[in-house]
Computed example of a mutant assay.
Amino acid sequence: MRIIPTALCQPGMRLGKAIFTEEGQILIGYQVELSSLMLKKLKQLGIHHLYIEDPRTDDIVIQDPIQEETRATVRSSLGKIFEKFSPTAGLSSSSSKNSASLAKAFTDSMSQILDELYERKKDPVMLTMLNMLPPTNMEQHFCQNALNVCLYATKLAMAQGSYNYDELMAIGLGALLHDVGSIHVPVQLLQKSSGLTSSEYVEVQKHVMYGYHMLKNETSIPAIAAQCALQHHERMDGSGYPYSLQGEQIHPYARWVGMLDSYDAMIHARTYRQAIPPHHALEVLYANAGKLYDINMVKLFRNNVAIYPLGLSVTLSNGAEGIVSRLNSHSMQRPVVRILKTPSGQELKEPYEVDLSSTLNVMIEGIGEAAGRVL
């Protein structure tokens, strides 16, 4: 099985995993043969990558950190925030009953996420989708970023080994809801393709205060989740906002969320810039360790996160093309790649593997759409 960008999928390919709606219903079933109409609809829905069957890669098992049904349930809960709050609504526009119901949906979802992550606690931290295209709308961007940061933060907190269940729940909810205040920022600012003016930047910065006020009185949500919303743009050297806090003044959970939010933003495209390769994003984190980000958290990230997920199509620096077939626990950023095409574009009858942890003169240069054509 492989992960292929929807834009590069072709009619006749078969799904390696079912596709679910945000309500958790099957949209297209496992092993269904894709048609041109299906692919067009999937692109319109903002589904940028698909799991595709391929006899050359049948032995590669790709598992999400959480079940697709759980992912769909979380997306649905996040989407309800957009139903509850319009971009121009007041911070207390909805009834306390509706608010309590939404808060319970998030705690129930987070509990399910934790249970599933505990079942596979020893698995590496790995997101199975890297969307290289900008999200088609703000709701899609919000949901994608929220769930990614939540999974990163919760898995890394588990890897650190010093947090109990309730603390993991608080970290997870803080990560899931860290950007909730962005709903109250004018969408034209969030999707602006050019640089923000100083006054526009001030307006965008207000999302941390909006998020704090939205969460602080939610009795079902841990109070620290509101602190994550408030502090996730603070930085270790005091260069962040809204209060220019430094070092230990920033809550550890907010430090986790801030670093992971930055990484997730870098590896995903936005309307105003392209995504950067995961290893470049990791270099940015490391270059700013101790300055912007907690250095111990950056090290834990480096040692535990598989930045190139299994099944991902890649192009190597020598021009060869293949997919990530195995991870190296001793070198998470340099996986084993199964080569399917030569640098000249010739299909290989007998694919071979390159272990990037021992072939140091070769690197991953392109992923997804950047990898060019379907292999």
Rank of each mutant, 00 (worst) to 15 (best):
residue 160 Q to F: 03
residue 161 G to L: 11
residue 162 S to T: 15
residue 162 S to Q: 15
residue 162 S to V: 15
residue 163 Y to A: 04
residue 164 N to L: 10
residue 165 Y to T: 09
residue 165 Y to R: 12
residue 166 D to T: 14
residue 167 E to Y: 03
residue 167 E to H: 08
residue 168 L to C: 05
residue 168 L to Y: 01
residue 168 L to N: 03
residue 169 M to G: 03
residue 170 A to S: 13
residue 171 I to V: 15
residue 171 I to M: 14
residue 175 A to Q: 02
residue 175 A to C: 06
residue 176 L to M: 13
residue 178 H to E: 08
residue 179 D to R: 10
residue 181 G to H: 08
residue 181 G to M: 09
residue 182 S to P: 02
residue 182 S to Y: 15
residue 183 I to G: 01
residue 184 H to M: 15
residue 184 H to Y: 15
residue 187 V to E: 10
residue 188 Q to T: 12
residue 190 L to H: 11
residue 190 L to D: 04
residue 191 Q to P: 01
residue 192 K to Q: 14
residue 192 K to A: 07
residue 192 K to L: 10
residue 194 S to T: 12
residue 194 S to L: 10
residue 194 S to R: 09
residue 196 L to K: 08
residue 196 L to S: 09
residue 199 S to E: 14
residue 200 E to C: 11
residue 202 V to F: 14
residue 204 V to R: 07
residue 206 K to Q: 09
residue 209 M to I: 13
residue 211 G to P: 01
residue 212 Y to P: 06
residue 213 H to K: 13
residue 214 M to Y: 02
residue 215 L to T: 00
residue 215 L to K: 00
residue 216 K to P: 01
residue 217 N to C: 04
residue 218 E to T: 05
residue 221 I to A: 09
residue 221 I to L: 08
residue 224 I to S: 09
residue 224 I to Y: 11
residue 226 A to I: 09
residue 228 C to W: 02
residue 230 L to Y: 06
residue 230 L to G: 01
residue 231 Q to P: 05
residue 232 H to P: 07
residue 232 H to W: 11
residue 233 H to Q: 06
residue 236 M to F: 12
residue 237 D to E: 09
residue 237 D to F: 03
residue 238 G to M: 06
residue 238 G to R: 02
residue 239 S to R: 07
residue 240 G to S: 12
residue 241 Y to N: 10
residue 241 Y to T: 12
residue 242 P to K: 06
residue 242 P to M: 10
